[in-house]
Design a protein around this nucleic acid. Sequence first.
DNA 1: TTATAAACGAGACGGTACGTCTTGTCTTATG
DNA 2: CATAAGACAAGACGTACCGTCTCGTTTATAA
Lengths: 199, 199, 199, 199
Amino acid sequence: MKQPLHRRQPTPGNPRVQRTRNRVLAVARELLPQVGPSGLTYALLAERADVTRQTLYRHWPTRAALLFDLVLEGPDLGTYPQPGNDVRDVATAWLKSLRAGVSVPAVRTAALAVTAQADHDPDSARALVRISEDRYTGFNQLLEPSGIQISEDEFTLLYGPVLARLFLDRGQVTDAFIDAVVTQWLTTLQHADTPRDFQ
Amino acid sequence: MKQPLHRRQPTPGNPRVQRTRNRVLAVARELLPQVGPSGLTYALLAERADVTRQTLYRHWPTRAALLFDLVLEGPDLGTYPQPGNDVRDVATAWLKSLRAGVSVPAVRTAALAVTAQADHDPDSARALVRISEDRYTGFNQLLEPSGIQISEDEFTLLYGPVLARLFLDRGQVTDAFIDAVVTQWLTTLQHADTPRDFQ
Amino acid sequence: MKQPLHRRQPTPGNPRVQRTRNRVLAVARELLPQVGPSGLTYALLAERADVTRQTLYRHWPTRAALLFDLVLEGPDLGTYPQPGNDVRDVATAWLKSLRAGVSVPAVRTAALAVTAQADHDPDSARALVRISEDRYTGFNQLLEPSGIQISEDEFTLLYGPVLARLFLDRGQVTDAFIDAVVTQWLTTLQHADTPRDFQ
Amino acid sequence: MKQPLHRRQPTPGNPRVQRTRNRVLAVARELLPQVGPSGLTYALLAERADVTRQTLYRHWPTRAALLFDLVLEGPDLGTYPQPGNDVRDVATAWLKSLRAGVSVPAVRTAALAVTAQADHDPDSARALVRISEDRYTGFNQLLEPSGIQISEDEFTLLYGPVLARLFLDRGQVTDAFIDAVVTQWLTTLQHADTPRDFQ
DNA sequence: TTATAAACGAGACGGTACGTCTTGTCTTATG
DNA sequence: CATAAGACAAGACGTACCGTCTCGTTTATAA
């Protein structure tokens, strides 16, 4: 739990630095689902990535920093949802994209690890909040063509059931389930007066 | 990650054993929120509980086993929801009880830790599923006077937003938010035909 | 190294006590050469001899005590040397008997273990001296028919090379080597005046 | 008894390594006679030498390895015997040097410990044999000016009584005793034909 | 093209925790 | 009521990982 000394991190511009960084992250992504969050030690990662432990510390002074990068720089999923004016279509596409993202093992494991330690690690907590907000903002951007913007509470009503099913129930998220979520969620939007914040 | 040898655990009947067990769990509950899941080492716990590490291993051969006990034998919350025939009242009371339970720091931390390692530890995964099912069954029992029974999908629609708000958004769950969740959820129930499973 | 509490030892007369004692010693004799002196733990011995560790502690409060018994109550070798008036014959027979005794693995191992800790364990030192004196006295008794009695120094000159060869060189003690030792030793006796002590 | 993994040992050239190594050996030499062979735990040694246990394991993966170093790198005794052409003088001087060497408590204790476990530890056995052979070779080198070379059996006849007296009888080795040993030993040499091997 | 700064490899080290083992004592239940 | 079964404290074992600190060597950028 001791905070490591904050040394100067490698300059991101340097091509050698990028090479090292990308190689390590790739290996980490491959390794994480195999060995689990607690098994992804710097010792193992250094050995597999053909790098010195020292190099890892230079790039990611904290294990949390490494996990952030794994979550944030998840592999491109290609099917990023497009903006649209049909709210149902946008919400459905977005939930499916969320489902896809969380299904990538490395991202999934890293995200859960960050969440678990967020209560006792301010950095992790900050990262988590930032990710949440990014998601929220991004979704509202997708909704712009429809002229509708939703509140944070409504946003939670949308994605909450999906993530709960995946992480907590450890069950499948079928297309039917997504449909049900969206259907229910739309009724709420229709019933709501403006402003629709539940304070 | 190596699975420790499964030695014979202390006989639960023995009063000496119970004394030790309770004392350790109490100390663990106190310690966990302070030091975080990774900080709750057997070394520290042994020292604080005035017990040998060996004794800890006898009682909980795996760290996961200890975490289970922390989650399952959470402190009594007193306000356990009562069965009733008003679905809205039952659901609201149940969500508030869930909120209360997850607000106990030790339970909260332990639950998150178990969740995080469930992907790579079958024991944790099993425990998680069992907890989920217990919650589901318990809720339906509360609903019995109303003559209504809900599906697992509907159950997820109910509690998903609340836990997502707590764990992922790391935001507050206000009474108003709970009301909104329940209200939306009730519309789904009313719209649904029988059977209401979303397959 | 802590000196164990000295509890009351079992009464040697009790047949049950003897049964236990003999069984344990037999198992220990079998075990010792297999696992080595440091591997002969009370835990292992108790398990193999179907006895509680407590019982072992009652019989031999100290590990050294157990080793003594193993050395002193070595198995009967049958060919114990007979007294005689031919000094060469007696000495040769005695050396061969010594060689035989030390070749019993359990005795050999136990004796070496006792020797090694004699410097730091007064009990072991005392036991060692006693064994030495017994051997010395016994040998002189064998010599009585010949009318010759030897000094301790002369005794050491006789058996010293044999034990050195066995324990330190870790080489074979052939009959020819024993003959050479005895021959050389006899010249010393003949040259010596009376008293033949080298002070 | 399980053979510890043989990891790479520190590079002997490194001055930092030598510093550590020498400091530890010095402390061990001081400690060994005080606490005995079984009391010289890595835990104690690490504490006293202001070194981590891990460092000890890096340098001496086996306790036996440490003991070897203690025996082999015994402190210089200064009075190492000189070659000569008077066999009696050389033998006497060599025995006195042997007596001196074995009187150094640390060497004495370490040597006995190695001997005791030689039966069950091949490494110790090998080390013991090597030490024996070194002594034998060294003695014959001292004898070179005299034109005489002795067999291993004759060598054992020389040093056997001295070490037996010291280790087994636990008695004093006086100058007179050494004289007696040498005198007897010389008669054997004179009587012997060439070659003087007792096969 | 060469200096000069950085990133990196190699590896020793102090710490801390792990999971296991043995020891000697003490407690509990049982026959 | 004595004894086995076994829980416990104490502490060593051998291992693993962490975070730091040299000290050389390689690589990239700037002079």
